[in-house]
């Protein structure tokens, strides 16, 4: 989806369009709760809000997951695991950043351990503002994401693949190295 000038030309083939229709209607979340926002997910999945209506359900391994929810502040150590897991997910994958901590560091803006801007390290398709958005906001985000997928705009994973070097540099700049060699992981 390249936007030469401001006219967005849709380059996807017919198959891609159908695939995106399918991808939007059956998204599997990765069951990996990184921050305080994770507690918002159970209510959105159970009987009151019922995410399953949109075909969205939790999956145990990154290999099967489509969406990666970064729910809240990301400490340096968790970011290393997030990047490692992000690279494990099969290709059309989308990332949603929950809460202000992923946008600009939130209340931990001045901490020596938390990062201030998520999309510096992994491509983020959608941010949800709020210091832990309520299920309604999450639903708003999911429907927005489904819209973007159908229109072909949610291609963070393409961006990650295209300028992989840039992302890697950012990661190394603030993390030192992604895969750690130390006493506990000999």
């Amino acid at each position: 989806m390249s936007n030469r000038g401001n006219v967005k030309i849709d380059e996807r083939t017919v198959w891609e369009k159908i695939a995106d229709q399918l991808r939007s209607r059956s998204m599997w979340m990765l069951h990996y709760c990184t921050g305080c926002g994770a507690v918002e997910l159970p209510p959105s999945m159970t009987s009151r809000f019922d995410l399953e209506r949109f075909g969205i359900g939790p999956m145990a391994t990154p290999r099967q997951a489509d969406i990666f929810l970064i729910t809240g502040y990301l400490s340096v150590k968790t970011l290393r695991r997030v990047i490692y897991t992000y690279e494990k997910m099969p290709d059309p994958k989308y990332v949603i950043g929950f809460g202000s901590c992923t946008i600009n560091g939130g209340i931990y803006y001045d901490s020596y351990a938390t990062i201030n801007r998520l999309d510096y390290y992994i491509p983020v398709d959608l941010y949800i503002a709020g210091c832990m958005p309520r299920p309604e906001a999450i639903f708003e985000a999911f429907t927005k994401l489904m819209e973007m997928i159908r229109k072909g705009e949610a291609n963070g994973w393409k961006r990650y693949k295209e300028n992989y070097e840039w992302y890697k540099q950012n990661q190394l700049r603030s993390l030192g190295e992604v895969i750690i060699h130390d006493e506990f992981h000999e």
Binding site: I103, N104, G105, Y109, D110, S111, Y112, T114, I115, N116, R117, Y120, N170, R173, S174
Partner: peptide, 11 residues
């Protein structure tokens, strides 16, 4: 704060 500014780029 100064460490955070130096290591983690801000928006």
């Amino acid at each position: 704060l100064e460490y955070s500014k130096k290591h983690y780029p801000d928006r």
